[in-house]
Simulated assay, not measured.
Amino acid sequence: MSRRKMIYEGKAKILYEGPEPGTLVQYFKDDATAFNAEKMDVIDGKGALNNRLSEFFMKGLMQIGVPTHFIKRLNMREQLIRQVEIIPLEVIVRNVAAGSISKRLGIEEGTQLPRPIVEFSYKDDALGDPLVPEEYIIAFGWASQQDLDDIVSLALRVNDFMSGVMMAVGIKLVDFKIEIGRVWEGDFQRLIVADEISPDSCRLWDVETGEKLDKDVFRRDLGNLADAYTEVARRLGVLPVNGPQPGKPTLVN
């Protein structure tokens, strides 16, 4: 990687100054973290897989009219993206009870929810990304009521798209989280999907077996994380069916 100005480093990605004003280069790391980085490891090939999978999902969303920050993939680990003002919220969409909602409400994991549920958490690792109601979001000025209405609409459109794509390859979309960014076009604000969409940010279960194909494999010590992500990529056609072992994935252009 050539020497560039680093803008931000997170748990799974690094953002560098882009080649043009209003752009950034997003680099996907092999680092795996869980429980707010209390558990950490390096998974060979994970960054390349997430880069390619996020490209696949972002392109698909744009094809159905959902705006995203994605511009193009640059190489195995990097993509060119629009620079946005990130709203300090994680937007969580749940279709099936799993993880924290099961613990909070005592709902058995795997229970189908009556409808998709959209939740918001405040992005702050030191606080553990606490859930926040819409009243807090509006009161503290993180987003307006109109912003929240637009965010929920975007999140549900992403859910419809992702659920259909996954079900077509025998995978159940249990839940996922996205981030939303603001961009300005003249005097007008536009909200777009930002960050990434990958098995790092989704819960994905095999429809037939219930096998987990997401970061819960790492969180719960259920096997090899690269194997799980590679299986998702192969089913979606991102990797060749008879490709190499997941440690060193070969990606399809």
Rank of each mutant, 00 (worst) to 15 (best):
I178V: 08
E211A: 11
F176C: 04
F176P: 02
R182G: 02
L191A: 08
S163R: 05
E231V: 12
I197L: 14
W184T: 10
G186V: 14
G164T: 10
D216P: 08
D150M: 09
F218V: 00
G170D: 06
N224C: 13
E196H: 00
G186K: 01
V232G: 03
R190V: 11
R182P: 00
D150I: 07
D195R: 13
D216R: 12
G223Y: 11
R190K: 15
M166T: 05
M162A: 11
M162I: 10
W184Q: 13
G237I: 12
A226R: 00
S163P: 03
M162G: 04
F218I: 04
A194L: 10
K177D: 11
R235A: 04
E211F: 08
L204E: 00
G170I: 06
M167N: 14
V183R: 03
D200T: 04
I171E: 00
L154I: 13
D150Q: 13
D175W: 02
F161D: 01
T209N: 12
R235H: 06
L191F: 06
L222S: 09
G223H: 14
A155Q: 01
S163G: 11
R182Y: 02
V241P: 11
K177T: 07
N224L: 13
A228N: 02
E196I: 06
V174R: 07
R235Q: 05
R203G: 02
A155R: 01
F218G: 05
W184K: 12
A226W: 02
G186C: 10
D200H: 00
D221G: 08
D216S: 10
D187E: 15
K172P: 00
D221A: 11
N224S: 14
E208A: 08
V169C: 07
R234H: 10
T230S: 15
Q189S: 09
L191I: 11
M166G: 03
V183K: 04
F188N: 15
E211L: 12
D187Q: 12
P199W: 05
A168Q: 13
S153V: 02
D200S: 02
T209L: 06
D160Y: 14
I197R: 02
A155T: 03
E208Q: 13
K212E: 09
S163I: 06
V207M: 12
L236R: 09
V232K: 08
S163D: 12
E179S: 10
G237W: 08
